[in-house]
């Protein structure tokens, strides 16, 4: 059982050679590449951070003023998509984190006794359809659940 970081210097390090080799090869390639010594940089730009903000929210009017970077793409759609993705990831992590107790889903964020708040019922709604996936760890998993039933939400914090 791996409980914490522990430096091991045995044969399990062998695959690491691959990483080193990859570094050597890539470094050789990079050093053989004729990059231009000049960096274009952002000369004459007032605020790069502001420009990033303009690009991210499609503020074209502001982009075209003096001292800005003219031909940056618009990223509003990507921004929204990322927002949705993050939301989905949050939901996913909640689904993954919740446990089942004797077939009943236990809300990951709910403390014992107050499992009927909004978040808990939403999570249990998802869990109902996901029961078989959550239990495919086998019987060992369910015993673990039973063992740890006295400590709900301990891992999700």
């Amino acid at each position: 059982m791996t409980t914490g970081p522990k430096l091991r210097l045995d044969s399990s390090l062998a695959p690491g050679v691959l990483a080193v080799a990859l570094f050597v090869i890539m470094a050789t390639i990079v050093l053989n590449t004729g990059f231009s010594p000049e960096m274009e940089g952002f000369e004459g730009v007032d605020s790069i951070t502001a420009e990033i903000g303009y690009a991210m929210f499609d503020l074209e009017a502001l982009q075209s003023t003096e001292g800005s970077i003219p031909d940056t793409e618009a990223f509003l759609a990507a921004f929204l998509l990322i927002a949705v993705a993050l939301d989905a990831a949050l939901d996913a992590s909640l689904v993954l984190a919740k446990r089942e107790e004797e077939g009943e889903p236990v809300a990951a964020l709910a403390s014992r006794g107050t499992g009927s708040d909004g978040a808990g019922s939403a999570a249990s709604g998802v869990a109902g359809s996901d029961r078989s996936a959550a239990t495919d760890g086998g019987h060992e998993g369910s015993t673990v659940d039973a063992d740890r039933a006295d400590d709900p939400g301990g891992e999700s914090r």
Binding site: M1, T2, I82, A85, L86, A88, A89, L90, A92, S93, L94, V95, L96, A97, R99, A134, G137, G138, E140, G141, V144, D145, R148, E155, S156
Partner: peptide
Amino acid sequence: ALAAAEVAVGLGIILVLYRNFRD
């Protein structure tokens, strides 16, 4: 942002992993 999402899911997976294998 994507890395954050990835970590959220990854941690969830590790959680389930631990619950199922105690490891």
